[in-house]
């Protein structure tokens, strides 16, 4: 139950570390470039609704996705493009949601960040913050009842979501049931425009772990290596049966809430502080220190190509047709048709 901060990295096989590092690095750069493209498409008027970016949160989010494996469950939130890509969501599906492709998992019925694919273990978030905590817990309880062992659930929230009753109820339930759940809080300074001091009064959100009876770990959310290590360990502890893990990453949202928001309210001293570092820059520096600048550049080139190809492909896909929709919200729809009512 102790609250701890990321400490010394335990020795692991270099091969494994390199592989995880590459998965994280690639997810981060793929997310950043894809989101920059989404911003352009939005400004060009090709995306309706909104575009919500995870700029500055790629390390923390991506580390969660890297730490999971097939068969686990992931419930991302608004700023988790990196985590999604790392966990295996195809770039095309992200674009399909934003562009409303009929071939995407949401078929144009829902869009942008409200996407998921239950067959891949990715739960589609609803907009109501904190709601996914209990839902992932339900998936984990079901797995336990079905005697499926070893699966982990991971969900992400921001500092704002921790103020909701849903977050509290969900984490408490998971703690009571001692579920293999990892809750990643991106304490990114602002919930839309509301600064964290108007959101909660405790010094650090990780302090709440003790109150819930769960493990709590704080991490510098701008440091990819630290995020990778902390999330990997948290997921493994959950997998071993050590109960829910609350991971709180400190960082700054390096954009507005959505692309419609210039984020001018973000405090400039916060921007120039440690939490305002861009994790992508930090990753580049870390790669340079390891003498792997070439790798970093080639990952970027691969990601750039992947984005261009995915945009071209999804742009050509069909959009939904209201005349082909069945307009049934229940599966028992055909039964109600027989009765001539809805």
């Amino acid at each position: 139950m102790a609250t701890r901060t990321a400490g010394a990295v335990a020795p692991r096989s270099e091969q494994e570390l390199l592989l995880r590092g590459e998965r994280l690095g690639r997810a981060m750069i793929r997310a950043r470039l894809l989101e920059e493209k989404l911003g352009s498409l939005y400004r060009a008027g090709r995306i309706v609704g909104g575009v919500y970016l995870g700029r500055g949160q790629e390390a923390l989010s991506g580390a969660g996705g890297v730490a999971l494996r097939k068969g686990d469950v992931f419930a991302p939130l608004i700023r988790d493009m990196a985590g999604r890509l790392a966990f295996g969501e195809p770039m095309e599906d992200a674009l399909r949601a934003y562009l409303g492709s009929r071939l995407g998992p949401m078929k144009g019925r829902d869009g942008n960040i409200h996407r998921g694919d239950l067959s891949r273990g990715i739960l589609p978030m609803i907009s109501h913050l904190g709601a996914m905590v209990s839902t992932v817990s339900g998936v984990l309880m079901a797995k336990r009842m079905k005697k499926e062992r070893g699966g982990v659930g991971l969900t992400c929230v921001g500092d704002g979501a921790t103020s909701t009753g849903s977050f509290h109820e969900g984490l408490n339930l998971a703690a009571v049931e001692r579920l293999p759940l990892v809750v990643v809080v991106a304490d990114n300074g602002y919930a839309y425009s509301t600064p964290r001091e108007r959101q909660f009064a405790c010094v650090d959100l990780v302090d709440r772990a003790k109150g819930y009876g769960v493990a709590g770990v704080a991490v510098d959310g701008t440091d990819p290596i630290a995020c990778g290590e902390v999330l990997h360990r948290a997921v493994e502890r959950a997998r071993r049966g050590e109960g829910p893990q609350l991971v709180v990453g400190t960082l700054l949202r390096l954009c507005g809430h959505g692309e419609h928001d210039d984020g001018l309210y973000i405090d400039s001293t916060m921007k120039s502080s440690g939490r305002g570092r861009d994790c992508m820059q930090v990753m580049g520096d870390q790669m340079k220190k390891m003498g792997r600048e070439k790798d970093w550049l080639s990952w970027r080139e691969d990601a750039f190509r992947e984005v261009e190809e995915a945009v071209a492909k999804v742009s050509a896909e069909p959009v939904p047709d209201p005349f082909e929709e069945d307009w049934w919200a229940t599966q028992m729809g055909s039964g109600t048709e027989v009765l001539g009512s809805s």
């Binding site: 839902t135 992932v136 339900g138 998936v139 079901a142 009842m145 079905k146 408490n172 339930l173």
Partner: peptide
């Protein structure tokens, strides 16, 4: 037995139903 958490009770059921229960 559940905690007195109606939101989490229903949210849990949604997840369990998605998982085939």
């Amino acid at each position: 037995d559940s905690p007195i958490s109606e939101d989490a009770m229903v949210g849990m059921a949604v997840g369990a139903a998605m998982e085939g229960m």
